[in-house]
Computed example of a mutant assay.
Amino acid sequence: MANYRYMMSAEDIAKELNCSKSHAYKIVKELNRELAGQGYITMAGRIPRAFWAKKMYGYELSIS
């Protein structure tokens, strides 16, 4: 578990979607706005990996 990266950066998202970093930052900003609306604390330029999986692929990551 020591190597598990809980947060994804905009750079990670740009690589995953094969898009520009500026577009990835726009996506992260929108997702952070959604998280903040739900009462979560957010970090600029980063989103939780589990939230990304849920929003983009429709499933949640489970860590055992």
Rank of each mutant, 00 (worst) to 15 (best):
M1C: 13
A2C: 04
A2Y: 01
N3C: 09
Y4N: 13
Y4P: 09
R5L: 04
R5P: 00
R5N: 03
R5Y: 01
R5K: 11
R5C: 06
Y6S: 09
M7K: 03
M7C: 00
M7Y: 00
M7P: 00
M8Q: 11
M8I: 07
A10E: 01
A10W: 02
E11G: 05
D12C: 06
I13C: 12
I13S: 10
I13D: 09
A14P: 05
A14C: 07
A14V: 04
A14G: 07
A14E: 01
K15H: 02
K15I: 02
K15V: 05
E16N: 08
L17I: 06
L17N: 10
L17F: 10
N18Q: 14
N18D: 14
N18F: 00
N18G: 15
N18I: 09
N18L: 11
N18K: 10
C19E: 05
C19Y: 00
C19A: 07
C19N: 06
C19D: 03
C19S: 08
C19I: 12
S20N: 00
S20R: 02
K21A: 15
K21N: 14
K21D: 13
K21T: 15
K21L: 15
K21I: 15
S22M: 04
H23D: 04
H23W: 02
H23G: 02
A24K: 09
A24D: 10
Y25P: 02
Y25S: 08
K26H: 00
K26R: 06
K26I: 00
I27C: 08
V28D: 02
V28G: 02
K29G: 11
K29C: 13
E30I: 09
E30P: 06
L31R: 12
N32Y: 01
N32R: 05
N32F: 01
R33Q: 11
R33I: 15
R33G: 12
R33H: 11
A36G: 12
A36I: 05
A36S: 14
G37F: 03
G37W: 02
Q38D: 05
Q38P: 03
G39S: 07
G39M: 03
G39L: 03
Y40D: 04
Y40P: 04
I41M: 04
I41D: 04
I41W: 03
T42V: 15
M43R: 14
M43L: 13
M43E: 14
M43D: 08
R46W: 01
I47C: 10
I47E: 07
I47Y: 01
P48C: 08
R49C: 10
R49G: 08
R49W: 00
R49Q: 11
A50C: 12
A50W: 03
A50I: 09
A50S: 12
F51C: 11
W52H: 15
A53T: 04
A53C: 12
K54L: 06
K54C: 04
K54N: 12
K55H: 09
K55P: 09
K55D: 07
K55A: 14
K55I: 13
M56L: 12
M56P: 10
M56H: 14
M56K: 15
Y57P: 07
G58A: 05
Y59P: 04
Y59E: 08
Y59F: 08
E60D: 07
L61E: 14
L61C: 07
L61V: 09
S62F: 00
S62W: 00
S62N: 03
S62K: 03
I63V: 11
I63Q: 13
I63P: 10
